[in-house]
Write a protein that binds this DNA or RNA. Structure first.
Length: 197
DNA sequence: TAGGTCAAGGTGGCGG
DNA sequence: CCGCCACCTTGACCTA
């Protein structure tokens, strides 16, 4: 399963890391003019290497939201596809290449892992819901079958009487002595797990 | 304007 | 103790 950047459709709206001209400045568009406002937000790491409390004279600096450029996102996704974690060297190299702080790379990977895990969990949830549905349906079907057999007066070996059940060692199916047709599928009837990759 | 998205902050656990 | 991680939360921004 390919991991696609979920937000790539609108990443190019907010660009402009200095020295990283990835798209032409949009002077119009449906919104009009708002992009210009965001140009300062992707503040580059200040020349002093990593993040520090930049002296703002004590006043809390307003928290601005960084939007990664399309190119930055693409490279980060590429890197993530190769490895879901980075060693310090890789992190530093990637930060240098993308002109971001290594802390930002770290945060991006943390959030990316979280999103990946969430997606996986949602998929598993859907999977178990479907599985539950099919088991319920199968249960109903088997109950109907029992009722039919009872109606035919086949001398119902009640399903609960374990003494009348036997396990076929070959196919691992539980069968009744009286009616081999009443075969209960083993757990191997689980639908195949769908893997994320 | 409500709700979604996502970068970033805070916190606690864990291994070296 | 430090660095890294997962997890939760916050706040800026976007969109229907």
């Amino acid at each position: 399963m390919a991991i696609l950047p979920e937000n790539s459709s609108h990443l190019d709206l907010t660009i402009s890391v200095p020295g990283f001209s990835s798209s032409p400045p949009s002077d119009e568009g449906s919104g009009g003019g708002r992009e210009q406002l965001k140009l300062d937000m992707n503040q580059l790491p200040s020349s002093s290497e990593d993040d520090e409390e930049l002296s703002h004279g004590g006043s809390a600096p307003p928290r601005k939201k960084l939007r990664l450029t399309r190119e930055q996102s693409r490279l980060l996704e590429d890197s993530f596809r190769q490895n879901h974690t980075l060693n310090p060297k890789q992190k530093e190299a990637l930060a240098k290449h993308l002109m971001l702080r290594s802390r930002q790379i770290e945060v991006w990977f943390q959030n990316r892992r979280a999103r990946s895990k969430l997606k996986q969990t949602e998929m598993e949830c859907e999977y178990f819901k479907r599985w539950f549905g099919s088991l319920t349906e199968q249960n109903h079907r088997l109950h109907r079958e029992v009722e039919e057999l009872r109606a035919m007066n086949v001398g119902p070996p009640t399903v609960t009487s374990a003494s009348s059940l036997s396990m076929c060692p070959r196919c691992e199916r539980v069968t009744t002595a009286a009616s081999p047709s009443l075969a209960i599928p083993s757990q191997k009837t689980l639908p195949p797990q769908e893997s994320e990759h």
